[in-house]
Amino acid sequence: MTKDIRALFVDPPCDADVSPDRLSDAGTDLTVIPAATMDDALGTLSETRIDCVLSGYSLPDTDGIELVNVVRQMRPGLPFILCTESGSEHVASRAISAGVSDYFRTQETDADTLANRIEQTIRPSSSNEPDRRFNHYQSIVQAMGDGVYTIDTNGRMTVVNDALLEMSGYDREELIGKHISVLQAEQAECLGA
């Protein structure tokens, strides 16, 4: 069977122990094309059909955010997955602003998981679009190094990351669905208010 998803793998993230060959083997219909630099990636994009870009954040000649910006100028709708060795709120914020399709820390994945994420990014089911968007934002929140939460329109927490759990001492189940005032009251107590 001919593989029909072509992913451009720019400066593969070594600490995830995911090589282009391992990633290609993990995806049932995934061909991975490696590129070491932004120039290599842009050359490949201009000469080859590419369905998704997977890029590390720290590249030899630039960073992944700059690559996202250039790729968005060339191919605005091309799915772009950014991975970083250690998440930070600053990088995640820049990635969201640049329009990445997905963002995650490399320590939290393996070849099978990454291949699945690429395939889901390329072939999202219209029936699970709200879930896919929620999972996209949830993965960004989780990847941030600072304590972060999201709330719904009623002020109830929908997502909390591990950093917030560690800082607050709560379990995830104790916070999800609870009003944000739970954390605000705790913060006021800590500050002696």
Rank of each mutant, 00 (worst) to 15 (best):
D29K: 08
V141D: 02
I50W: 00
T121E: 09
T158Q: 14
A193H: 15
N128D: 13
S127A: 14
I81Q: 09
L42A: 05
P20T: 06
D51N: 14
H136S: 01
N116F: 13
T62P: 07
V70Y: 05
R172C: 03
L82S: 07
E108V: 10
L183M: 12
Y170I: 09
Y149P: 01
G43L: 08
I96E: 07
I33Y: 02
I33W: 08
R49H: 11
L164T: 08
V141S: 04
K3L: 07
G192M: 03
Q138S: 15
R133K: 14
V100T: 03
F104I: 05
P79W: 11
G56S: 13
R72H: 04
Q120M: 03
S126N: 12
D131N: 14
V182Y: 00
N161K: 10
D15N: 12
I65E: 07
D110T: 09
Q187R: 15
R49S: 13
P130H: 04
S24L: 08
H179Y: 07
C190F: 15
M38E: 09
V159F: 01
P20M: 06
V91G: 00
V159H: 07
S19M: 07
Q107A: 11
R172Y: 08
A98H: 02
K3C: 08
C14I: 14
M157S: 01
P60L: 04
R72N: 05
V32T: 02
D162K: 12
A7N: 03
E85D: 14
A95H: 02
I50G: 01
D171R: 13
R123H: 09
S88R: 06
I81G: 03
D25N: 12
L191H: 02
L42E: 12
D11I: 00
S24W: 03
G56L: 05
A95F: 02
F104K: 10
T84R: 05
F104E: 03
C14W: 12
D25R: 14
Q120S: 12
D162M: 11
G64R: 00
V70M: 11
